[in-house]
Design a protein around this nucleic acid. Structure first.
Length: 256
DNA sequence: ATGGCAGAATTTTTCTGA
């Protein structure tokens, strides 16, 4: 079974690319981020034609997450990250499907820093850790996948000097990510490619794609039971080089 | 020190992203 995460940067602008990717790679579960539409604008019919059931949590202009499942309808278990009733941003959606509990995560970027956006990022990561701990107690395998907006190591970016002043590479952001992993979550790509050098994002600007100036921020975190089933994982890098692409590439795990 | 690009909603600009 393959589970993929894909920050599509706008589901309306990206629909042809997204349908093409689904048709070509047929993931069993696809978690999407940055759908950038209100609930009414979600093109569920288009996914149904390809045999995908879907749930989504939209928001006007920004954010927004969704979960697609091949030949199945995801059963929603959580909408919005618990822990702050005043947080109205659509960044977390969770479901049971194909025998696994899966969450689609769009973690706050946190720029600029210092400031309220960076504070929000760190508070969000703290809430995620608490909620993840409650999921770890389940009997089901669990996968927390999405755009974490954290570059975990210096070997996860094209140059260790890049983004040093950015929220994606701040010591506090990285520490919060490592604390989450220390609770027992496996970063699938980090485990499979321990030397790094694997990118999931390339900026639209300054010829980043052409020069392979990327970094790794899309992560698939597996509970111990799910991690035991990890067969392979990777990035559908070629899709980043197509016409009018997202700035992220689809990233996936194969579980046995 | 700054720009470079892209998407959304409109406002031919502004905000957000990473």
């Amino acid at each position: 079974m393959r589970i993929a995460t894909y920050n599509i940067n706008g589901i309306k602008a990206r629909l042809p690319r997204l349908l093409e990717w689904l048709d070509e790679t047929r993931p069993d579960i696809a978690c999407l981020q940055e759908i950038k539409t209100q609930d009414e604008g979600f093109p569920a019919d288009e996914f149904e034609k390809l045999g995908y059931g879907a749930i989504w949590h939209g928001q006007k202009s920004f954010n927004g997450v969704a979960i697609l499942a091949h030949n199945a309808q995801p059963v929603e278990t959580q909408r919005g990250l618990p822990g702050d009733p005043e947080d109205e941003q659509s960044r977390y959606l969770e479901a049971d499907v194909h025998g696994i509990r899966v969450a689609s995560i769009y973690l706050p970027n946190g720029n600029p820093l210092p400031g309220p956006k960076f504070d929000y990022k760190l508070a969000w990561m703290k809430r995620l850790r608490a909620h993840a701990a409650s999921l770890a107690a389940l009997e089901l395998p669990v996968a927390l996948v999405g755009d974490y907006n954290v570059v975990p190591h210096t070997h996860d970016i094209w140059s260790p000097k890049a983004l040093l002043d950015d929220a994606l590479r701040q010591p506090e952001s990285i520490a919060a990510y490592r604390t989450l992993l220390a609770d027992g979550w496996t970063d699938a790509l980090a485990t499979h490619y321990p030397l790094g050098g694997v990118w999931t994002y390339w900026d639209y600007q300054a010829g980043a794609w052409q020069q392979d100036h990327g970094f790794r921020i899309d992560h698939l975190l597996l509970s111990p039971v799910a991690a035991d089933r990890l067969v392979s994982c990777g990035v559908d890098k070629e899709h980043r080089g197509r016409e009018t692409p997202s700035d992220h590439a689809p990233t996936w795990v194969e579980l046995g």
